[in-house]
């Protein structure tokens, strides 16, 4: 009897798993991320040299954030500048981007990114938690209740000749 029961259970579980396997895992809401990016633009001041021409957001790595940032670019301006979103595959393509967004899959490039953007007015935003410790200006994080928040490295941002408003600092977990 025990053997039959165990077999029944195994069959039940196996079929259940197979039938359910078509469903994808819980996904990030990248629109929320893009809203935050827009607010970073609002509450951070770039030097005069960056206020001309297009406001470039470069996204390194293949990420759904690109689509959401393009939707942002289509409807909003960055303090009067037209927003241009570029998806790049190599750091050589950074150019004069005002924002460099490091998608989760490219987090390991942080060291190279910092080297490439040294002394350049580029805000480095990382998707993975903890990268502000390694020199990123901002990284996103998720609280226990799934609320989206961000960490901010004041020193790193100011090192890129950018000024942060107190409003933004008050919203952030600040890396000391």
């Amino acid at each position: 009897m025990k053997r039959k029961i165990v077999l029944n259970l195994i069959c039940f579980l196996f079929l259940s798993v197979v039938l359910n396997s078509r469903v994808h895992a819980q996904e990030k809401d990248y629109r929320a991320y893009s809203i935050y990016v827009y607010n970073f633009i609002k509450y951070i001041e770039w030097p005069e040299s960056s206020k001309e021409g297009e406001f470039v957001i470069a996204v390194i790595g293949d990420s759904p954030i690109t689509k959401e940032l393009r939707a942002l670019a289509a409807s909003k301006k960055a303090n009067g500048q037209t927003i241009l979103v570029r998806n790049i595959v190599s750091l050589t393509e950074i150019g004069n981007a005002q924002i460099l967004y490091i998608s989760t899959g490219k987090s390991s490039l942080i060291k190279d990114v910092l080297e490439k953007t040294k002394n350049v007015p580029t805000l480095v935003i990382a998707e993975r938690e903890g990268l502000v410790k390694k020199g990123a200006g901002i990284n996103f994080l998720t609280l226990d209740d799934e609320t989206l928040k961000f960490e901010l490295n004041k020193k790193a941002i100011e090192g890129h000749n950018l000024r942060i408003s107190q409003t933004l600092i008050s919203l952030a977990f600040v890396e000391k």
Partner: peptide, 24 residues
């Protein structure tokens, strides 16, 4: 209608995930 101009209070309520299933 302009979601990018939401208030600071609303901004702080944003969730990182799009859809939570009943199980989640």
């Amino acid at each position: 209608a302009d979601i990018y101009e939401m208030s600071i209070e609303q901004l702080q309520k944003l969730k990182a995930v799009g859809v939570s299933s009943d199980l989640e």
